[in-house]
Design a protein around this nucleic acid. Structure first.
Length: 505
RNA sequence: GGCGGGCUAGCUCAAUUGGCAGAGCAAGUGACUCUUAAUCACUAGGUUCGGGGUUCGAGUCCCCGGCCCGUCACCA
């Protein structure tokens, strides 16, 4: 819009015009918005107001303020009709999310960590001088509000301001109050903006904290003790993944960031602890996408004298318990267009791997015992065959592309061929089958009890350095093990719908 | 790494066949003492991701580069 600009002016001419003395305040773009706020900050200071005071004595959260009024309303019932109810004076604090001027009155939507509350500010309530501060407020500022809680004529429970205190003057505009912040990169790199703007981001952060707390309680309730084991390790053992490498200067020695917690937990079992778990970060130097972050959190547990049936029982009960404790139900509601309702109620079906593959694809891995026959069967069904893959790797591809995406409701796949997990416990009475399971929910892997070193064979262990050679010195008891992946992405991960969308419940 | 989609005002998004770069929110000024996506009037705000090319004329077409998203592959 250049209504005042002659059509034949170049952009340079216009810029020159902007810099002329009669338009000294002309600013462009975002800088103008910031300068407006700097000017308001200066005005606050000139009135003797500190725009960044050191503390504020809050008496109520927004949620408590609303409840305070509701309790008063409930107690006074209908007999005080006609008289406006008014609580005692309280003080709330939060960020200005929106404001609506109405002549010599204003409404401010205030949000703190517990939710929103409306502030109702009137000039004849606050007085002319105190009300004047309204003009110096912007969306994004943090303010403290003192006054009683009332219900406005239109029914909104509001703090009726007698005094407003600027706690933090904000310099940059917030994202659109209605459209919010959409750019995923900005959301992840400026997480604070996402938390301010998108209610779901805040809910997810709180949900995650609850998930961890409940998970921890669950494990303690089952007699597991929690430990922390080394993250900087001389040998990155316990999984097949590329580790991050680092160096300790004083020792002049290369170290690795752990790729699993497995080895040290196993040592604790050897040492006599019977049930142990660790929640912590693992680091894997590999590609990243929405399902894979180089650093991610797992819980890993070991339970002496247990087998994979015991561990499956634990996993399904843990997950269902967490869902119930954090969302109120073991059934996660449908997310439109993303996934159907998910029922986590145990027990989850145990699917025999061989049977499942046969039913889904027609491939019987017992009848395709070598790379050639399995590759042939895969090609016939249009499954990508990566040249040079070993047999176990090929079968893993069949599972991940044909079985896993279909396991929307929670399931366990059990009893894997030994070629896929050469170090796992053999299943008694079978030929070439190991006691391995993987749990799947919403088409992706949730937990595993698998490949390495639940065996107690020293010879096998000694042959595989990365799977825990040190434990081969002392024999491991029969032990059940699991590793549960969750929130592999540090950032919000919409494809992990099982956890993520629980927050929308 | 392959293929596909995208990058325009602080934010969310338009722009027909290549023909004057727009709107809503946010911001500024004014009106309004019960609004809640407040309303009304006016104002300002642009290196259309970067570079090169074709053209009378490029947000639009071509080439090079960057970044984001999706997908397949890799990886687990």
């Amino acid at each position: 819009m250049r209504a005042n600009t002659p059509e034949n002016m170049t952009p340079e001419d216009q810029r020159d015009q902007h810099e002329q003395p009669n338009q000294p305040d002309q600013q462009i773009g975002e800088q103008k918005l910031i300068n407006d706020r700097l000017a308001k900050t200066a005005q606050l200071r000139s009135r003797g107001i500190d725009p960044y005071p050191p503390r504020f004595d809050r008496t109520h959260t927004t949620a408590e303020a609303v409840k305070l009024f509701e309790d008063l309303e409930g107690a006074s019932s209908a007999r005080d009709e006609g008289e406006q109810l008014r609580t005692a004076t309280i003080r709330v604090a939060g960020r200005i999310m929106a404001r609506r001027g109405q002549g010599k009155a204003s409404f401010i939507d205030l949000k703190d960590g517990h939710g929103p509350v409306q502030v109702f500010a009137r000039q004849n309530t606050m007085g002319d001088d105190a009300y004047a501060i309204i003009d110096l407020l912007d969306i994004g500022d943090i303010i403290g509000v003192e006054g009683p809680v009332i219900r406005t004529r239109r029914g909104e429970i509001s703090v009726e301001a007698t005094e407003i205190t600027v706690l933090t003057k904000s310099m940059r505009p917030l994202p659109d109050k209605w459209g919010g912040l959409q750019d995923q990169e900005v959301r992840f790199r400026q997480r604070y903006l996402d938390l301010i703007t998108n209610e779901r981001a805040m809910k997810n952060a709180l949900l995650r904290s609850n998930v961890v707390r409940v998970m921890r309680d669950f494990m303690h309730g089952r007699g597991f003790i929690e430990v922390e084991t080394p993250i900087l390790v001389p040998v990155a053992a316990g999984a097949q993944a590329t580790p991050f490498k680092t160096h300790h200067n004083q020792l002049d020695r290369d170290l690795y960031l752990r790729i699993a917690t497995e080895l040290y937990l196993k040592k604790l079992i050897v040492g006599g602890i019977e049930r142990v778990f660790e929640i912590g970060r693992l680091f894997r130097n590999e590609g990243l996408d929405h399902d894979h972050n180089p650093e991610f959190t797992t819980i890993e547990s070991y339970q002496a004298y247990a087998d994979y049936n015991d561990v499956m029982e634990m996993v399904e009960n843990m997950v269902a318990h967490i869902a119930r404790e954090t969302t109120g139900s073991m059934v996660l509601p449908e997310v439109e267009g993303v996934r159907p309702e998910i029922d986590l109620t145990p027990p989850w079906p145990r699917l025999d791997l061989r049977t499942e593959i046969k039913e889904r694809t027609g491939i019987d891995f017992v009848e395709t015992p070598d790379v050639e026959s399995l590759s042939q069967a895969m090609r016939e069904r249009g499954i990508h065959v990566e040249e040079g893959s070993v047999w176990g790797r090929l079968l893993d591809k069949v599972i991940s592309s044909e079985i896993e995406p279909n396991l929307i409701q929670p399931h366990f796949l059990v009893d894997y061929p030994v070629e896929m997990s050469p170090l796992a416990k053999r299943k008694p009475g079978t030929d070439g089958i190991v006691e391995r399971f993987e749990a799947f929910v919403v088409g992706s892997e949730l937990a595993t009890h698998s490949p390495s070193s639940t065996t107690r064979s020293t010879s096998v262990n000694a042959s595989n350095n990365r799977s825990g050679c040190e434990t081969s010195l002392v024999t491991l008891r029969p032990t059940g093990w699991t590793r549960i992946f969750w929130w592999r992405s540090n950032t919000e991960c919409h494809r992990r719908a099982g956890w993520d969308s629980a927050s929308t419940a």
